[in-house]
Write a protein that binds this DNA or RNA. Sequence first.
RNA 1: UGGGGAAUCGUUCAAUGGUAGGACGACGGACUCUGACUCCGUUAAUCAAGGUUCGAAUCCUUGUUCCCCAGCCA
Length: 563
Amino acid sequence: MIEATPSNPAPTDFIRDIIDEDLRTNKHAGRVATRFPPEPNGYIHIGHAKSVCLNFGLAIQYQGTCNLRLDDTDPAGESMEFVESIIRDVHWLGFDWEDRLFYASDYFEKLYAFAVEMIKSGSAYVCSLNPDEMREYRGTFTEPGKDSPDRDRSVVENLDLFERMRAGEFADGAYTLRAKIDMAAPNIVMRDPILYRIKREPHYRTGTKWVIYPMYDFAHCLSDALEGITHSICTLEFENNRPLYDWIVERLIPANRPKQIEFARLSVSYTVLSKRRLIELVQKGYVNGWDDPRMPTVTGMRRRGYTPEAIRKFCAEIGVAKNDNLIDVALLEHCVRDDLNERSPRAMGVLHPLRVVIDNYPEDQVESFECQNHPQRPEMGVRQVPFSKVLYIERDDFMEDPPKKYHRLGPGREVRLRNAYIIKFASMVKDEKTGEVIEIHCTYDPATRNAPPADGRKVPGVIHWLSVQHAIPAEVRLYDRLFSIEDPGSEEDFIKYLNPNSLETVTTCYVEQSLKDGVPGSRYQFERLGYFCVDEKDTKAGRPVFNRVVPLRDSWTKIAERK
RNA sequence: UGGGGAAUCGUUCAAUGGUAGGACGACGGACUCUGACUCCGUUAAUCAAGGUUCGAAUCCUUGUUCCCCAGCCA
């Protein structure tokens, strides 16, 4: 469980201001109770994570409670698979609701009783308008609606009809239960909104027990009230629904009424977060499922190698406000790097190998270098890495005709092999047909093992390497942003902005021996390349599969691009 | 076009009548056996126009732009 500590200062925002004020006036007897209320019709994503961190974070900060509630009032599309994924993902994010796991569907009986109460008090009526008529009677933005012909039906008749709706006497859509408010209200939400509809759709929890289901506007506020929620936090698009929320609660809940507070939902550049769009990506096979490491879902980010700490940091960094926003994905990546830098052991890996032969190194000699697992954290220990005459280095770490600021290997140049010797270029071997450099010959300076050059010369470049005979073949998946434009979420045909290079699988990679049977989910920094995570799903014995979580910041790329 | 919201560095969040600040980004530098990390510095904003005030991002007026709402979805 996360706690608010001095190193993790509680942010200030307008929601906390409201809560502070409520506490000051003793509005809820000092209680703070929130809830995270997803509908189980999809996997949760980084946008939900913002809400999770907000709601649970508030509960932690104010020593209150936060419930997990599945808002399952529309059986279409809901399933236990999604419930289970939500439970797993929220737990993984680091939050705990203890015994307060609730389902709106557990309140169906109570909600029905509330509806009956509304009918009895003359606040609701059974309406026989069909969907087309309903739309017509609702009016438009500029014209008021018309009263339903059933609006003045007697209480007795309404009660009878509603009971028979529940009993299954009528076809789907034949009747609805509506709140009697004001068909001329300027806020369209208040024009006699539907409270219950008839829908013969099996519910993943209640089966066929019910053929009528409450609408969001009716179920949500009352679920909040039933759970004693004090601050019901939702996104901006529900602002128009707040008067209805209050209208219902005022009629049915005598005291300790919950209050709805809205904040801006999260948008992230170069990604989409709407459920509809994510479903399309999955169903049409543009990605490999909800847990595709390119997906902004919690499960996708987890598989990619993001940590819950990084996601929480991100949610704290972006803040909470009422402005529409488009957060730069670079901030998310910053949070991930920041966290992974602290916790990831270093290792050497070669993505695109180039053979290097150390000419003056004894043929059959193998020596072992002790390498720090983390340059700033000695408590993370050391490991032994074998060295021999023939090595792999990264192809990028050699240039036949290097530009001025290039620090690494080239004709006539010297370079430090990380944790090992300084080597000096001797010659290169080219493929006869293509002219491509396929092997480098170097000499090493035995005096530079774990020591600077005796003559004090500067060797600016440090590269990583692997002993060919000890290297473990691996597969690495490199991920790039899923979309090629900043705000694909605003485009109707967002699919055409998919980045065709968002996944690159590299099969020629090698990693250190110590990573041969890497634990799924464990993360390493391959120095100079980025952070990598052993895939949780695709495990191959003796041939590890890595996801690149995020590349390291690389100022060389910028320097090179500028030319 | 009716109603509901929001406008502050490139992005994002603060400042609630009293020095416009932080983070990310970008740029420059120091350090470095990771061109990483770390450290230092620079850049850069109050939607507009009026008004009130000693003083306005903040209050008032008018205007502008953007977002949400006409599902028996949430």
